[in-house]
């Protein structure tokens, strides 16, 4: 029972990690919370349902298409809603409100057009595997493996490729990297593309695990929480925070009460903020003048 709970926790944590990484990536460059990220994940999930359930395309093709859709939507939101603000060097608050606007717009657009139904994905990756005397879902196992691969690839890209180094430079100091000949707009688009691809994968797995529905964007609140726990703008922090959060949730819902699971994750956030506001791996919170 304990092993099963822990594995479920890690699997949920893996999906949270995908979202938290995408979210943290955008935060590290633009320094604001992209609240539009949740609805984009939701749209990817709907796209996955559309591809798998209605068009009956093969899983791998749908996954890749969903990543492309996510990247496209993220870039679109950047160009339409954030770029004018960046040009004006607006305050963070304005970016957040703009992101909120996109999020409300997309979520309710789906409500108004598709409706509030729950869409069940077709049966793929079903069944369980016996592992260490516990029944572990193939989907959970697959989510863990795939999250590891995706985050590993992203980590490699950021640390060992030329654009990756540029991303790190911009996240460290925007102005100086611009002086050194980095095209900020191109880097921002690249970052939104990467984040969108993560959103595509996360959306597919969330849809397979919990079905697709218009308000599923709220699950990304968990991604924000895990990013805060790990330290905003830090990628390893986002992964660790997400797995901790996944474990806290699955353990508390099995051993205490599943109805108030969200209260636990929230209280965990508050306690964490109280003890270490900068998160586990975050930079210090004190702002520079």
């Amino acid at each position: 029972m304990l092993i099963q709970t822990v594995v479920t926790g890690i699997a949920i944590g893996g999906i949270y990690a995908l979202m938290a990484v995408g979210y943290s990536l955008i935060f590290s460059i633009l320094n604001f919370s992209n609240f539009a990220y949740g609805p984009i994940i939701m749209l990817c999930s709907f796209f996955g349902y559309f591809g798998l359930g209605i068009l009956k395309l093969p899983f791998w093709l749908v996954l890749i298409l969903s990543m492309l859709v996510g990247a496209f939507l993220c870039c679109l939101s950047e160009i339409l809603a954030y770029r004018p603000l960046r040009k004006r060097k607006a305050k963070t608050l304005y970016f957040m409100i703009s992101a909120m606007g996109i999020s409300i717009l997309l979520e309710n657009m789906v409500y108004a057009t598709v409706g509030a139904h729950f869409y069940n994905y077709p049966q793929i990756l079903q069944g369980t595997v016996k592992l260490l005397a516990a029944d572990i879902g193939v989907l959970d196992l697959f989510a863990i493996i795939f999250s590891c691969i995706a985050i590993g690839a992203l980590h490699f890209f950021i640390n060992h490729s030329k654009p990756g180094i540029a991303i790190r430079a911009v996240s460290y100091d925007t102005v100086v990297s611009q002086i050194n000949g980095i095209n900020i707009n191109a880097i921002v688009i690249l970052v939104f593309c990467l984040a969108g691809m993560m959103a595509g994968i996360a959306g597919m797995f969330l849809g397979m695990k919990y079905m697709a529905y218009p308000t599923m964007g709220w699950i990304t609140n968990k991604a924000y929480i895990s990013a805060v726990i790990g330290g905003m703008g830090s990628l390893p922090g986002a992964v660790v925070g997400a797995i901790i959060l996944g474990l806290v949730e699955s353990l508390s819902s099995v051993y205490i009460s599943s109805a108030i699971r969200d209260v636990f994750s929230f209280s965990f956030l508050i306690i964490m903020l109280f003890i270490k506001p900068s998160g586990l791996f975050g930079k210090t919170l004190e702002e520079k003048v």
């Binding site: 604001f32 963070t92 608050l93 924000y224 969200d262 929230f266 956030l269 508050i270 109280f274 506001p277």
Partner: peptide, 22 residues
């Protein structure tokens, strides 16, 4: 706790978001 920790924009917004749900 949240204001004592001098939470800025995003952190505070997320904390209140979680609070509302809780």
């Amino acid at each position: 706790p949240t204001l004592r920790a001098k939470l800025q924009n995003d952190y505070f917004a997320i904390a209140t978001l979680g609070f509302g749900e809780a």
